[in-house]
């Protein structure tokens, strides 16, 4: 690319990054969005979002992202579809190195990296991904019509996706390692009332078995120490998120899990670098707070640029 110096480079095109971009452009800043995959991030995996205000009937994840994208495109979307692999301060500027060795220069940087789905890390998981092991019920649920599937997890996503899968599967085992769910009460109530869902408490998976596709899972009851085998055709894993911040170690401060530490103005430990959305260290990961943080990050960047002129 040219030697252009951007006012703000935003890395990540999910709700946090798109909101930051919107605010940056409305502040008349020269903004660049860097996104390695499709615009939208994890929201694309959600069938129906029911807790984003303004959509009383709920809205499919893809449609919400489409609307957010349309909104930023009104202000001109400068997009680079590449992966960022390094960030370093260079005098007053920041340099972002991209996967193809291209360098982006910017006065401020907003990290809106999102988070990846956490893996179980057990035998069979990687080998059978796409062959019955899935992290997206919306995408892959319809392949399991009238079959038996297992859902792993106890948070909002796990319960919501278990409910979604009952539209296709004839039975859904909901396997949770503890004896209570973390999910919001309304989802717990719906799960308990659904005749297709069988909850298996205090249980973890030891292995996912199958040759060309998933045939079953080896379970381990943490209370009784008993091992078991459940015949299932699909395993849907929703056990939380993990950050993709390995490349930022030593550049900005991270918490012990690798999430980026920020203050209430979304400032990281490196001046002129902000972070927002699922990649930051925080207790709740919702679309609504990702957007809020994106707005704050952009406004903070704007203030910083004004004061440094």
């Amino acid at each position: 690319m040219s030697d252009k110096i951007w006012d703000v480079a935003i890395i990540g095109g999910g709700p946090a990054g798109l909101t930051a971009y919107l605010y940056a452009r409305r502040a008349l800043l020269e903004a660049l969005l860097i996104e390695k995959g499709p615009i939208g991030g994890q929201v694309l995996l959600t069938d129906l979002i029911e807790n984003y205000p303004g959509f009383p009937e709920g809205i499919p994840g893809f449609e919400l992202i489409q609307k957010m994208q349309e909104q930023v495109e009104k202000y001109g979307l400068n997009l680079v579809q590449k992966k960022a692999i390094a960030l370093k301060p260079e005098g007053e500027l920041k340099e972002i190195l991209l996967e193809d060795k291209e360098v982006v220069k910017a006065r401020t940087v907003i990290l809106a990296l999102g988070a990846g789905m956490r893996k179980l890390g057990i035998p069979g998981e990687k080998e059978l991904t796409g062959k019955g092991v899935s992290y997206c019920a919306t995408c892959d649920g319809p392949f399991f019509k009238n079959q038996i599937v297992a859902v792993i997890g106890g948070g909002n996503t796990a319960l919501q996706e278990a409910l979604y899968l009952t539209k296709f599967a004839k039975k859904v085992y909901l396997i949770h390692r503890r004896d209570a769910f973390r999910a919001t009460p309304i989802l717990q109530q719906r799960v308990k009332e659904n005749p297709k869902i069988e909850i298996i408490w205090n249980t973890v998976l030891k292995e996912i078995k199958g040759k060309d596709s998933v045939e079953g899972v080896v379970t381990y009851n943490r209370q009784t120490g008993e091992e078991g085998f459940l015949e299932v055709a699909g395993v849907f894993i929703f056990i939380g998120h993990e950050p993709e911040t390995e490349w930022l170690k030593g550049v900005v401060e991270l918490d012990e899990k690798g999430f980026i530490l920020v203050n209430q103005n979304m400032e990281t430990s490196l001046k002129g670098v902000y972070a927002c959305g699922d990649c930051i260290s925080k207790p709740f990961r919702q679309i609504i707070n990702a957007c809020g943080e994106g707005a704050v990050a952009a406004l903070s960047a704007e203030k910083y640029l004004e004061s440094s002129h």
């Binding site: 995959g37 499709p38 939208g40 929201v43 694309l44 893809f62 995408c139």
Partner: peptide, 12 residues
């Protein structure tokens, strides 16, 4: 058509 990520990569 039901798959968000599929629709998102279509332009690519």
């Amino acid at each position: 058509p039901w798959c968000g990520p599929c629709r998102a990569i279509a332009p690519i």
